[in-house]
């Protein structure tokens, strides 16, 4: 009876006899080391024809949408409750009505737009008008079926704004150009280009926390009051429909 191979003295000839075992062990070691990557890849490649279709992807995405919407609704309710506790203006998106822009004079002497809805639809003077992206102006006058909106770029426009990053107030003044001027009351407001400008969270005239624009340039060395220019997020030149916040 011949001695087993592992009992035999070490010889290269004997080693060559067990090469399949060595290769198998090496392969299994690689599998363990790579956490089965090759297996998983092969599995994925082999089963590609049987992967779930796009319908299932849409289901998952719509599920995510629903999840985000419900989360947003809960946060909004929470926000309303907290604002009510603080006796602040309600921030509700449900009281907005859409109106078409029927006339647009964004440049020149009169920076105004005309909307196709008026008092009959509940629009009153002073109602804030929002475009896609943020606030664009205030309703200055309303007829039964139309409303005239003074744009934020108009020289007569003047509203209080808020820099959320620094929690500071400023005054946004129209100067006739497409970029309104932002004036701060403090000497060194520490703002920098790129800061978001929104309506104040404590605002009672405008809907709170509505984005307005981004600070484009800032002159801290201004002699009297530090000021900068704001690029509006919602551009009135390209808006066909707006939303009006009604009380």
């Amino acid at each position: 009876m011949a001695a087993p191979i592992w009992a035999a003295p070490f010889r290269l000839k004997n080693l060559l006899k067990i090469w399949p075992i060595i290769i198998l062990a090496t392969a299994l070691f690689v599998v363990r080391w790579t956490k089965g990557a090759a297996f998983a890849d092969f599995y994925a490649l082999a089963l590609r024809p049987f992967w779930p279709g796009t319908a299932q992807k849409h289901w998952i995405e719509s599920g995510l949408d629903i999840q985000l919407q419900s989360k947003l609704r809960l946060l909004e309710q929470d926000n309303q409750r907290l604002r009510a506790l603080l006796s602040l203006e309600r921030a509700s998106g449900e009281e907005r009505i859409s109106a078409p822009v029927i006339s647009r004079v964004p440049g020149g002497w009169w920076q105004q737009i005309e909307l196709g809805k008026g008092r009959v639809d509940g629009i009153m003077n002073g109602a804030p008008v929002l475009g896609p992206g943020g606030l664009i102006g205030i309703v200055e006058s309303a007829t039964p079926f139309t409303s005239r909106v003074r744009l934020l770029t108009s020289p007569k426009s003047r509203i209080g704004v808020w820099v959320p990053r620094l929690k500071r107030h400023g005054i946004l003044t129209g100067v006739g150009t497409s970029r309104p001027k932002l004036v701060f009351l403090e000497k060194d407001p520490q703002v920098r280009p790129g800061d978001l400008i929104s309506t104040s969270p404590a605002s009672t005239l405008l809907p709170p926390n509505v984005p307005i624009g981004v600070l484009q340039s800032f002159d801290s060395a201004a002699s009297f009051e530090p000021s900068g220019f704001v690029q509006l997020i919602a551009s009135p030149e390209a808006i066909d429909w707006v939303q009006i916040q009604v009380r």
């Binding site: 006339s103 647009r104 004079v105 440049g107 020149g108």
Partner: peptide, 15 residues
């Protein structure tokens, strides 16, 4: 004409 303010008939946004 004032309300229509055709954009192709403006210069620097001014009609």
């Amino acid at each position: 004409l004032f309300f229509a303010n055709p954009p192709w008939l403006t210069l620097m946004g001014v009609g």
